[in-house]
Design a protein around this nucleic acid. Structure first.
Lengths: 347, 347
DNA sequence: CTGAAAGCGCTTACAG
DNA sequence: CTGAAAGCGCTTACAG
């Protein structure tokens, strides 16, 4: 009868608390708490006694009670835009490894559907008192701008607006990377290179800009053409279909990311054309997907694991009071040449 | 000076509590709590007053305090074995959608490295007082057997041992599915069909058994051969290499899953052989990866979204006191024929 | 080295 | 309909 409301028969047996451990070991609960924290001022024998008692009754700390009194959770909220994007897994693995190394927990939420759901998830994260937010995939969750503060700094893995307090970012240099893709195609002899873009996002903007600047640099500004797409398989398909349907179709497609490039490859095949015989295709991200044998996609490679590791290091470092080196870090991408690019037919 | 220990300059301004809301609205904190829960016995005007006050000062419930007094978290721990397996994303999306629909939160942890790390993650989950565990990917985390109880039921997405109390599972019928793969290949005229297996796991066991039974059923028991592999890209490569190096190499490979089949495709290419001209390859899972155009892998398709949805529904239902229909549910897989299978050379 | 007390932010009987 | 009090499981000064 220690618990009220047990008349439903569903009453869960409460888990053991430090009180139970204390009773078993014959000490006060303060001492149990101290011993469990390995505080130095507990007598060794007492500590052993307490630890044994805890072990025996299967004691396990209650994280909620701990968080309440500690006034912190050592938890960061990881917001993932697209679980299906193959870059997510590489990045997340690195993020979690680094967070764990620094003794931070991660709690992952998936966004990308509608803004309302994202706001709701974000709200839960904040009720949870996550100490920071790490956004994997080009942008913060909807509604996060107001939440970003000294209380809850954020790091975006991708480009983010400069000058916003408590908002950092780490990304590869997308403008440079897009230039690398164009350079490669121009070097092969292509001139009609179409860019299938990623819509309205900072990353898409940078890659588009890099493409346009590189085309101009090569004296191909007049031939530059951007077709709307998205970061998904489906967006790449749509974009490539539109591009290939033009009066004078391109000989090469530079697609905003590897996943969308999969869609582009499908569209090329559906148009009865061969890759790279009729059309060359370049992706972006350097994912494991691109490297799979039957695909062999030429792509602009980002150091995904390093990005993830550094994003987590940046955020956790901030929380631990380390002075951040730079709010917005930029890594160098590199072209990974495979089998979806070749000289154009006429060359 | 309301907080002690602020002399470091790092003191975080405490977030507003119901106490602050109460002060602002000029009521007691009990009433604030009640109003925030939409309890019916609060006077409408008082409620408005309180809600407005909460809004004004940016009040947000503290989940830890709530969990402590509610004695539950409405959170399930989702243990993911391999984030890189393309089936994970499909399943997770469905799991999270269903959990959210039932007003449960999910907290995802990634396992698969070493047993010690898995145990540590599991421990954190339990300190957290997750109300149940959902394992995505063939098995429970290491050390979870002892944790599974009325307090913390578990559902494995994949086959799990029968008769363990509070442990359920949902999977496709792997024995049947493996049979489907063999039937398809035999139907095309193949006889030398090698299975690249997944090592020591219940799912691998079932698929191996289904393969062996089907070979026997077709009178090919003497030709049956199982080569060790794993559920990863790399394991598939290794297995296929070994299989193709035999004195009388196979004309078809049935690989334990789609990801490993990617490795197998690479090994076939490295051996200078063509798919499906020289060797047919069948995977398992029916992932988006298999369906990507340049891959076109014939595979045994599982209803991934349905599996995820039902696994979450099963677990959350249990927590909500619903009587579970069946502890171990089995869905039917179906062959998805694409371009990596064809009649053998001699046929 | 050890214990009693206060308090983290909330909810819930219990009185009015 | 509203408020004072107790308590969820822990930690942390504060005394001894």
């Amino acid at each position: 009868m220690s618990q009220a409301g047990g008349d439903t028969g569903l009453e869960r047996p409460s888990r053991p608390t430090i009180r139970d451990v204390a009773a078993r070991a014959g000490v006060s609960k303060s001492l149990v708490s101290l011993a469990l924290q390995n505080a130095p001022r507990v007598a060794p024998e007492t500590r052993e006694l307490i630890l044994a008692a805890a072990e025996e009754i299967g004691y396990r700390r209650n994280a909620a009670a701990h968080a309440l009194v500690a006034r912190r959770t050592r938890t960061i909220g990881v917001f993932v835009l697209d679980l299906h994007n193959p870059m997510t897994a590489d990045v997340l693995d690195a993020v979690q490894a680094e967070a764990r190394r620094r003794d931070y927990r991660t709690i992952v939420v998936v966004g990308g559907e509608d803004a309302a759901a994202e706001r709701a998830e974000l709200e839960k994260l904040l009720e949870f008192r996550v100490e920071g937010i790490l956004a994997v995939g080009h942008r913060l969750p909807h509604g996060a701008e107001e939440a970003v503060s000294a209380d809850c700094p954020a790091v975006v893995l991708g480009s983010a607006p400069r000058g916003v307090p408590h908002l950092g970012s780490i990304s590869n240099d997308d403008v440079l990377g897009a230039g690398l893709a164009v350079d490669h195609l121009v070097g092969l002899g292509h001139r009609r290179i179409v860019h299938i873009d990623g819509g309205a996002s900072a990353v898409a903007d940078d890659r588009r800009r890099g493409y346009l600047e590189a085309m101009r640099r090569h004296g191909l500004g007049d031939l530059a053409a951007v077709v709307p797409g998205s970061f998904s398989d489906e967006g790449g398909y749509r974009g490539a279909r539109a591009a290939l349907g033009a009066d004078v179709p391109p000989t090469a497609l530079f697609v905003v990311n590897d996943l969308a490039a999969m869609g582009a490859l499908a569209a090329v095949a559906d148009a009865g054309l061969a890759v790279p015989g009729d059309v060359s295709v370049v992706g972006y991200d350097g994912t494991a997907l691109a490297g799979m044998r039957p695909i062999g996609l030429t792509t602009v490679g980002q150091p995904l694991a390093e990005l993830g590791m550094r994003a987590a290091a940046h955020l956790c470092g901030l929380l631990d009071g380390e002075a951040p080196a730079e709010a917005h870090a930029l890594l160098r991408p590199a072209l990974v040449e495979r089998r979806t690019t070749a000289p154009p037919v006429g060359a």
